[in-house]
Design a binder for these strands. Structure first.
Length: 462
RNA sequence: GGCGGCGUGGCCGAGCGGUUAGGCAGGGGCCUGCAAAGCCCCGUACUCCGGUUCGAAUCCGGACGCCGCCUCCA
């Protein structure tokens, strides 16, 4: 069973499931006010890997991830571009899914949208108001954090300590600077919804509480997201749930940051900013490999150098897949251990990799094992031990598939003129006409092909 | 001010007291008509200063440097 670092406990602990055999997980999704960036990509990849691994392990996973479609930045953008908030959200939600699909991330089972849950948020706020945990001000409704005894358990600091550090500008009507907005009173040029406590729009922290509890029920197993959401977003979500008597999530997990070296992320510096740009310019699997290659809680550095490093690694894996004609696993479908049969030798590898991944998602450790296995399979094949090699290769590709990394073995479409060159080269080589063979190879190479003669017949690839 | 993290070989990146992480790049070899791919071998790293220990990258103390959170953020 997976052991994961729990952000409240501050230690790695086993994921204790509410219902045996079933995992309910909620991952805070994006606010669709712009193009998805590298940080969005990382969280989506990390939790996709987690979901896949749990599924591989035989668990029935329900994965929920929301779209925030009402928020300050969306309103600001809509105003700036003189179009509706709905139009902005539609555009960037479209971009979001394009990027998700390109990264080979499986779609969530449920994708709740904040605007579809406003009446339920209103009911939650009413409940909080009725018990005086929430209070009204001239600009909305606020949550009184002092009413939650263990407020700060996610921040890792007691309330007093947080309060001492709060960056001032005391909002007159708030009881504490840490109190957060549940509801923002309507303004004439902003979208608003009716409510018994005055029309307006929901604050960000309320939507995820309502949506996660609605779709997964109280005491769901895992609530995950980027490290930056730990405080105050997740703290505040939890505070609301606890305040109305729920247990909320049993386990909290957070992935680390994306860095771009010491340089500020910007196009002018030739750093990738948006996922959309990254995916347009690189192998779309490179980012997944980069994410898998470091621990999910460590910061990762995404630069041209680290991405191209990953791309070259992928070439090695693709060459491997080609050599053994391995099927492309991963992508939108899930792999399950139970769907595969492993010989005892290969079962040992599966066990070792499983132990790595079950240990707080040690993907770097798992990859090290898999790369070793790739070398082993190649070596076996070199020695002519083809059955063993093939079986190992199939196991390796299944395990890559288990974390969503698809190896490509499919030959590219090759046009007839190029095929003719390859045939001519085979003729020349049979005739030991090396000058002609070399000339034809140069021609193919100039056309962008990589030429390999390994099996007697020439094989070309891009 | 409070809380937390990090500093590893050319680059990336694991490591949680003793054994080769792994990848990429580089060097040598095997294979090959020559290449490519593949395989084998190689670099002998851990910010600094003390300490604990038979033994420390790994534990403790200190120094220096970098970063994050306490405010919208994946």
């Amino acid at each position: 069973m997976l052991r994961l670092f729990d952000s409240v406990a501050g230690e790695v602990r086993e994921l204790e499931l509410r219902d045996p055999g079933k995992v309910s997980m909620y991952v805070c999704g994006p606010t669709v006010s712009g193009l998805p960036h590298l940080g969005h990509g990382r969280f989506a990849l990390v939790w996709d890997v987690t979901r896949r691994w749990l599924t591989w392990s035989g668990l029935d996973v329900t994965y929920v991830s929301n779209i925030t479609d009402i928020e300050d930045k969306i309103i600001a953008r809509a105003r700036e571009e003189q179009r509706s908030e709905v139009a902005v959200c539609e555009e960037f939600e479209g971009e979001w899914w394009k990027a998700i699909d390109a990264l080979g991330i499986a779609r969530p089972d449920h994708v709740p949208h904040a605007t579809h849950y406003v009446p339920q948020m209103v009911r939650l706020i009413e409940e909080l108001l009725s018990s005086d945990i929430a209070y009204r001000t001239s600009d909305g409704v606020y949550f009184d954090v002092s009413r939650v005894p263990d407020y700060g358990c996610l921040a890792g600091q007691p309330l007093d300590s947080l309060r001492a550090g709060a960056r001032v500008e005391g909002h007159d009507e708030k009881r504490s600077p840490l109190d957060f907005a549940l509801w923002k009173a309507a303004k004439s040029d902003e979208p608003s919804w009716p409510a018994s406590f005055g029309s307006g729009r929901p604050g960000w922290h309320t939507e995820c509480v309502v949506m996660s509890l609605d779709l997964l029920g109280d005491g769901f197993d895992l609530h995950a997201g980027g490290l930056d959401l730990k405080f105050p977003h997740h703290e505040n979500e939890r505070a609301q749930a606890v305040a109305v008597g729920d247990k909320f999530a049993r386990h909290w997990a957070h992935n680390g940051w994306v860095m771009v070296g010491s340089e500020k992320m910007s196009k002018s510096l030739n750093n990738f900013t948006s996922l959309t740009d990254l995916l347009a310019e690189t192998d779309q699997r490179a980012y997944r490999l980069l994410v898998l290659r470091s621990h999910y809680r460590s910061p990762i550095d995404v630069t041209k150098a680290t991405i191209s490093d990953a791309e070259r690694s992928l070439e090695r894996l693709d060459t491997f897949a080609r050599r053994f004609s391995l099927p492309p696993l991963g992508g939108p479908r899930f792999e399950r251990a139970a769907d595969h049969e492993f010989s005892s030798d290969n079962a040992a590898l599966v066990t070792l990799v499983s132990e790595r991944l079950d240990d707080d998602l040690d993907t770097p450790g798992a990859l090290a094992l898999l790369f070793d296995a790739v070398s082993q399979a190649n070596a076996l094949s070199d020695q002519g031990r083809n059955e063993e090699a093939q079986a190992l290769a199939v196991t390796v590709t299944a395990l890559f598939g288990a974390v969503g990394l698809t190896l490509r073995s499919r030959a590219e479409d090759i046009d007839e003129a190029t095929r003719a060159l390859v045939r001519a080269r085979n003729e020349a080589r049979r005739a030991k006409n090396w000058a002609e063979a070399d000339r034809l190879r140069d021609e193919l190479v100039t056309a962008g092909w990589i030429v390999e003669d390994a099996t007697g017949e020439t094989v070309i690839r891009r």
